[in-house]
Design a protein around this nucleic acid. Structure first.
Length: 272
DNA sequence: CCCGGAACCTGAAGGC
DNA sequence: TGCCTTCAGGTTCCGG
């Protein structure tokens, strides 16, 4: 599942290969993947544009174009970007061709992935909360966000309008490292817990970026390599396995229809 | 506004 | 072998 570390890795991998090149052709194989504008206009306005920059915001990937417009991609749960793949991917939804002969394939088995071509990036990413790795994201900022919510802390961490980029797996990992039960109400955390959580969020995300993302499911890097971040996960996707700290079996509960993994001994307490 | 649940989608994996 | 259920989960929509 591409979350912040996976999208950051894809951005870093693609940066040297696409920046400075022009789109010469775009094939849309699944019309559902284009959210805005219509397909014909999307292709027409993209072809001929040079990529001036590549950025990440939350889980969104943003291609800055020479016209001033931007191509924005969201991989959702199962999307991947493949650069010059050897074989045709059976789940290819769109193919971009560049002026140096290279091509970029947007593949997505579950068909949730989407793209926009917009003049103003803010119309797509405008409601996102702060970047958790930006200097301005301090423990004080986190405390303020959490103090306004009484939903379970796990659900709040995954809310993109509050903090951008954290998804199911990294929320579980951050809460484990901070020794906080996922069902605790967000506004019940004390200052020490907020500081621990702030530090845990940054550690978990930075470590995962260093490991080039987590290949738990369909995620691959543009060159086809897998990320290795999942091998150092403590609880995420590890139901029944022993906690690496105390040996207690990792528990799995459902929260908002999402698997939530935690250690009942290292993350004690329940709601309230 | 806040919160929780369902829906969208499809393949893998496990049970019987 | 084959059918059925569960799991995976980012985002959006809807009802309370």
């Amino acid at each position: 599942m591409p979350e912040l570390p996976e999208v950051e890795t894809i951005k870093n991998d693609l940066l040297p290969t696409v920046v400075g090149h022009r789109f010469t052709r775009v094939d849309i194989l699944d019309p559902e993947i284009v959210r805005q504008p219509g397909i014909a206009e999307f292709c027409h306005r993209l072809v001929g544009q040079r990529v001036e920059g590549l950025e990440r915001r939350g889980k969104y990937l943003i291609f800055r174009l020479s016209s001033g417009a931007a191509l924005i991609l969201h991989l959702k749960m199962s999307g991947s970007l493949l650069f010059n793949p050897r074989q045709i991917d059976p789940y290819a939804r769109a193919v971009f061709y560049f002026d140096d002969g290279s091509r970029l394939v947007f593949a997505d088995p579950r068909r949730f992935g989407v793209m926009w071509l917009v003049e103003d990036v803010e119309t797509v990413v405008g409601k996102l909360g702060p970047e958790p790795l930006a200097p301005g994201f301090t423990p004080e900022v986190l405390l303020k966000l959490l103090s306004q919510r009484r939903a379970p802390i796990k659900a709040v961490l995954c809310d993109q309008d509050l903090i951008a980029g954290i998804g199911n797996m990294y929320a579980d990992e951050a809460l484990f490292r901070a020794n906080i039960h996922p069902l605790r109400r967000a506004n019940s955390l004390c200052w020490r817990e907020v500081k621990r959580l702030h530090s845990a969020i940054r550690q978990v995300l930075e470590t995962a970026i260093g490991n080039k993302g987590a290949s738990t499911d369909t995620y691959v890097r543009p060159d086809g390599q897998l990320g290795t971040a999942h091998s150092s996960f403590c609880v995420a996707h590890r139901g029944g396995e022993p906690c690496p700290v105390c040996g207690t079996p990792v528990e799995r509960i459902a929260l908002r229809n999402r698997g939530t993994y935690f250690c009942p001994r290292c993350q004690p307490g329940s709601p309230s």
